[in-house]
Nucleic acid binder design. Sequence first.
DNA 1: CAATAATACATCATAATCCGATGTATGCAA
DNA 2: TTGCATACATCGGATTATGATGTATTATTG
Lengths: 99, 99
Amino acid sequence: MILKLLSEKERMYGYEMVQRVKEMSHEKILIKEGSLYPTLHALTKEGYLTTESALVNNRTRKYYSLTNKGKGLAAPAVDELVDFQQTLKLIFGSKPALS
Amino acid sequence: MILKLLSEKERMYGYEMVQRVKEMSHEKILIKEGSLYPTLHALTKEGYLTTESALVNNRTRKYYSLTNKGKGLAAPAVDELVDFQQTLKLIFGSKPALS
DNA sequence: CAATAATACATCATAATCCGATGTATGCAA
DNA sequence: TTGCATACATCGGATTATGATGTATTATTG
């Protein structure tokens, strides 16, 4: 999801990602800090993301962007999830439950 | 998925479930024995499934069925997955990639 | 006819992943 | 001044998936 978000918006910070996913998913997917920040750090360490820090309203913000390598990771990863969603639909395709 | 399968067919055995999911998912989801059997045993132990063994073609088969308790688990669990699939679609909804 | 694939069960150790709890700090609203 | 939102971060525990491994029979195919 991080890769998906950053494919659609060049520069985002962690907290913003949490809000964006919450909004896009109609409050259904709530990314926790305990999941987000370690993942962001790992992706950065592996060279998929770059960061720049900023101070906004006297609060620290750390912006993340995809590197070229990151774009290379994002494209197939997003495709895979699109595919997975469609596969899930094959099995849990929403036929409304008849009483 | 086990619960989904058994909601649609009263009695199934492990190997059959693997084949059915493989088929329904167009070969995309391949449940491994290392995932399936421990799960089946756990669900049985917790009273969600009952088993009956049979010998077919000189090979052992263990059929599983939902108990009433299992049906109570299956209904909301399946709903949850249907819901999840739709949520995933909100985020990874397949807009075909423009070149 | 011998080797391989398919059918059918099972377990275990390793790896991956998620998240609750916890901590720090500022700004804003009640 | 209490609490909520913003904003970062870490760590340990719990859950889950699966590759590897094992047993055994039947069917296929070169």
